[in-house]
């Protein structure tokens, strides 16, 4: 299934690029991501728990950056299989950065996600509606992270925001 979404952030394109080019950072933003291990250049392993109410599915994923054009485009191909669960996923994610102005950027996310096995058999109806919500969460947390990293001063001691 294909999911597209986008967001704008008041961060220059280079700043956005530096954040999203780092697998650790991307991992942090994926809902349910528990660990990320960079294996070699362009390849990283991660473990993600997808939780829909009391349904929990754990996946181990292997991602590879298959295309990169700094600072505008990065394509990641991910395959993974369920842990203790007969389900597989494969996903091609394209992130495109458009510089809107000197200090603002649009991030366009395009994901082609395929799920097979038990989870898919349960009914695509269940999967789809949820996945869309999850991508939304991802979009928001990615935006948050980009902004946090690029404006570190905004945050001190975790919670309070200092206004200049």
């Amino acid at each position: 299934m294909n999911i597209s979404t986008s967001f704008q952030t008041p961060v220059p394109i280079q700043g956005v690029w530096e954040v999203i080019f780092d697998p650790y950072n991307i991992g942090k933003t994926i809902p349910g991501c528990e660990e990320v291990e960079v294996r070699e250049d362009n390849t990283y392993l991660s473990k993600v728990t997808v939780k829909v109410a009391y349904i929990k599915a754990k996946f181990k994923l292997l991602s590879k950056i298959v295309e990169e054009e700094a600072p505008t485009r990065i394509v990641t191909y991910t395959i993974g299989e369920g842990i203790g669960l007969l389900s597989n996923v494969s996903m091609t994610t394209t992130l495109e950065l458009n510089s809107l102005s000197e200090d603002s950027t649009e991030v366009v996310i395009n994901a082609e996600l395929n799920v097979t096995g038990t989870l898919a058999n349960l009914g695509a109806r269940i999967m789809r509606a949820k996945v869309e919500g999850m991508v939304d969460d991802w979009r928001l947390s990615m935006k948050q992270l980009i902004e946090d990293i690029n404006n570190p001063l905004k945050k001190v001691s975790g919670q309070e925001t200092i206004h200049f």
Partner: peptide, 11 residues
């Protein structure tokens, strides 16, 4: 109503 609440349906 606000169409953005509508979620994907495979069919």
């Amino acid at each position: 109503f606000d169409q953005s609440i509508i979620r994907m349906d495979p069919y």
